[in-house]
Design a protein around this nucleic acid. Structure first.
Lengths: 351, 351
DNA sequence: TTTAGCACTCAGTATACTAGAGTGCTAAAT
DNA sequence: ATTTAGCACTCTAGTATACTGAGTGCTAAA
């Protein structure tokens, strides 16, 4: 592996120290750092000339670059990557911050509200954009199914799933059904499927469909279809994720190019690319970071994304992320993302 | 009225003609217009010097201004206002456009979907931002109410309102109720309130509450509370309006200042100011236009807003709008807003 | 009342110059 | 074999200067 080669062969302690100081300084100042300054800050008691030699090496290896001949050096993507992977000194969380997050995430009741709060926290605490995917319901447990007759050959089907959630659908039928007929059908289905996973339930219903009384067939069919829709994430109005603080990104010099910014915002709206990126993180455990072009999407070329899955009872329910300029304080953002993910999971659990 | 004074006293036909040409030209080009050019374009067969005299008058009256000494003139807010009020020649709608709008608004079923489509159409057809408020349900007609027993002393209440809409709420009770008890309660409530407006229903229930059997009181109470919540726009997750195409606004030179742009986007997100503005339009009949500072909100200083209420059966349900730079083609945008409002109303009616 | 003519203004652009920051390289010092 | 001092070189950013073109305002004539 080239990274290890680099580390073993030529990136000695001094070079690493210099890179670390450079990255940290650049993250806070945004200014390229010259050899003179770096020599002073590094506390290594070496002359600027020596620093220059080291920097030339680092540049050759692709960890830093110079915006122009007579500017100092700035980190490259590869430089940030090394910094993030091997020389991060994560800032400890203050008590204030922890209490604020946990307060915001417990005061809120609805699930959407929680997601919104979490996204707002990520954005507010980092002054960047916060993204939270809605919790996945991949294990939808059917608790109860009921039918209610409506007028005009319509039947309201009610599915109660996962403790508290309720899903409705109006089914158009060929004829009127009376209340007792519907109760019968519901009883039958409940007996067959209650307590099961929706996928299982669906399969069972499909199996039994042939054996069922002729005049109920259609209703059963509808019920099955309904289940299918619920299973395959029925609601097209419901968003996939919530973004808060997009406009924060307009403050950053690095993103002030209006065309790039537009590309970024469009990416948030169109969702495709961004969802792909977040999906990639759902299987990774813990924090995952994409720096600059690493994400593979042009719109995110000048951004870094710090992601973490969040879980309820060890089962991963979704992903949250902070999106900001490549030059962000990873040491500050990482613990915030981590904390929010953990507390969001807990909050969802308590629901 | 000063406007009339202006018109009667000093703004003769020629001056109006020149202003009209100037506004139209500036809207398409974005360039200040000089006297030489304007003389040619106006088809009035007058010399540039004469035009200059007229322009000096118009400037004195506040209809035009010069960005600097040696530039041509551009319209002021007041100039746009006069243009929009008295000299607009609205572009006729093409058949293509009408069919596209009506197709987009009929293919879609859900209410949210319709609003989203309308907003998308406004945005797409104008290359600016489209805004549509969600339809108001101020006359919520209760069709049917049902209760279902759940486990753990919980009851699921189902309200069917306005033809097709369904609202659920889970009510925690003091003891278990069996199915027939609940059916009884539902029957009682249905008899009392079915077909009525929710506000009326609530009042009726409150009146009757004392007469009702003791052990049902609590359930009734819950039902009433539920109704109240539904009435007072229960769902906090549901947005007030939908904005599509915000990012389109980034293309316009006039709005390219990143701070102004941020202010504008924040205004969309925070909703307060914008909702106020839209509320002001709900009572106005037909198209209403806010040019530049006329709206009274700083964030919209460099923007114009073209709004129209939309109605179902003559009852106004909401407002839609196009937001773009002051220098927009009012002659093109106005009919688009008008058409979309009408067809959205029709589409909602057919639901 | 309209027009021609002319002096004037101003944004925008190109050019040139300077100062400052920082580098790379060489040769001496450790 | 490293490290350092010294120096020439490069490039940005800022400033001054001049020029051009577009367009105006004003005056005096038509």
């Amino acid at each position: 592996m080239t990274l290890n080669d680099d580390l073993n062969s030529s990136l000695n302690v001094r070079a690493q120290q210099l890179l670390k100081v450079l990255v940290q300084s650049y993250i806070t100042d945004g200014q390229p750092m010259g050899s003179r300054n770096l020599a002073k800050m590094s506390e290594l008691d070496i002359s600027p000339a020596t620093v220059r030699n080291v920097m030339a090496d680092l540049e050759e290896m692709g960890f830093v670059e110079a915006p122009h001949t007579s500017a100092g050096r700035i980190p490259t993507t590869k430089g940030y990557r090394l910094f993030v992977d091997t020389m991060l000194t994560v800032q400890p969380l203050t008590n204030d911050l922890v209490t604020r997050v946990s307060k915001d995430l417990t005061s809120n009741l609805s699930m959407n509200g929680l997601v919104e709060s979490a996204s707002g926290l990520l954005s507010g605490l980092t002054s960047m954009a916060g993204v939270v995917t809605l919790p996945k319901h991949d294990r939808v447990e059917l608790r109860q199914i009921e039918f209610l007759p409506l007028s005009d050959k319509r039947v309201l089907a009610i599915l109660i799933v996962n403790q508290k959630e309720v899903q409705n659908r109006i089914i158009h039928t060929d004829r009127e059904y009376n209340r007792s007929e519907l109760e019968q059908a519901a009883n039958y289905l409940n007996e067959l499927c209650a307590g099961q996973d929706l996928v299982m339930a669906r399969q069972k219903i499909l199996q039994e469909l042939d054996n069922v009384r002729e005049n109920m067939n259609e209703l059963m069919q509808s019920a099955v279809e309904m289940g299918e829709k619920v299973f395959s994430d029925a609601n097209p109005d419901e968003p996939d994720y919530v973004v808060v603080g997009q406009t924060n990104l307009m403050e950053y010099e690095e993103l002030s190019d209006i065309y790039k910014l537009r590309g970024l915002f469009d990416a948030f709206n169109q969702k495709r690319e961004f969802l792909n990126l977040l999906d990639r993180c759902i299987c990774a455990e813990g924090i995952q970071i994409f720096i600059g072009q690493e994400s593979g999407y042009k719109a995110l070329d000048d951004c870094s994304v710090v992601t973490s899955p969040y879980a309820v009872d060890d089962e991963i329910m979704g992903v949250l992320a902070v999106v900001g300029p490549t030059r962000m304080s990873y040491e500050r953002v990482i613990p915030i993302v981590d904390l929010t993910a953990k507390l969001l999971g807990e909050a969802l659990n308590n629901k």
